[in-house]
Nucleic acid binder design. Structure first.
Lengths: 123, 123
DNA sequence: ATCTTGTGTTCGAATATTCCAATATTCTTA
DNA sequence: TAAGAATATTGGAATATTCGAACACAAGAT
């Protein structure tokens, strides 16, 4: 998942996922779905966003593989396909992270730079 | 951090972070910086992307608070401000996540729907 | 079959993003 | 201080995203 055939990370697929999360309304939808599966109208009323717009955002989330839906009576039930992923991403973003300082980076930078200059291929 | 004054999650700030990660080149830059702090030219050569474009993407990452930079001799040293955050996000995205099935969601949906219909305020 | 409610789609305008070419700017070194 | 290397900025074209309005479609109730 999110790796290409050769087992390496895939910037295109991954950026597609982040792009799907790159909108406040979509984040609010995902947060809501983290609590409960919801129908379009419920989301519409909870978020104070027009219904067609909610549908559009849900469509983006669905194309990104973040949500799925199934009809439930007269409602469309939207839910997270991978709640664990979404939960983890939110928690990561909410957490406090230690800040890296320039002083701590300096030596690693110089070393990496030297290595790169030695390795310098043709030029 | 990434919470507003009232301590709640902040969709606008959070989506800004995801937006910064919503581009394959920026993801590649972040992955590179996860290994080592780098100067612009090094990134430029490693990624085969034109230098002004690299600068532009770095600027986006900097505005999002994901990277910082400091001059080191004649080079600009770019590094991750919160390596832990970036690492965690990549790991989350690369991991295998259990898929939620419609059957598992159905009952929760119905219950949530009933609650919502009862709570129905004015209308 | 019609009406109502819930949902999805389409079109177009406004805005934002992305990238390149060209040009600036900033250091370092001669 | 002039040259050169490293990096940043700007302007503009191409493309993508966003959102509302209007409309289309689907299912259940009457």
């Amino acid at each position: 998942m999110l790796k290409n055939a050769s087992g390496h990370s895939n910037p295109d697929e991954e950026s597609a996922l982040f792009k799907a999360m790159a909108h406040p309304v979509r984040l609010m939808i995902l947060r809501e779905l983290l609590k409960n599966p919801r129908c379009v109208t419920a989301i519409h009323e909870i978020l104070d966003v027009r219904q067609p717009n909610i549908s559009q955002h849900l469509s983006v989330l669905k194309n990104a593989g973040l949500v799925a839906s199934g009809r439930e009576g007269s409602y469309m039930c939207y839910y997270l396909r991978k709640p664990g992923l979404v939960k983890t991403l939110f928690e990561a973003v909410e957490a406090e992270w230690p800040e890296e300082k320039m002083e701590n980076v300096r030596n690693r930078f110089r070393k990496a730079l030297e290595e790169r200059l030695e390795a310098e291929p043709i030029r």
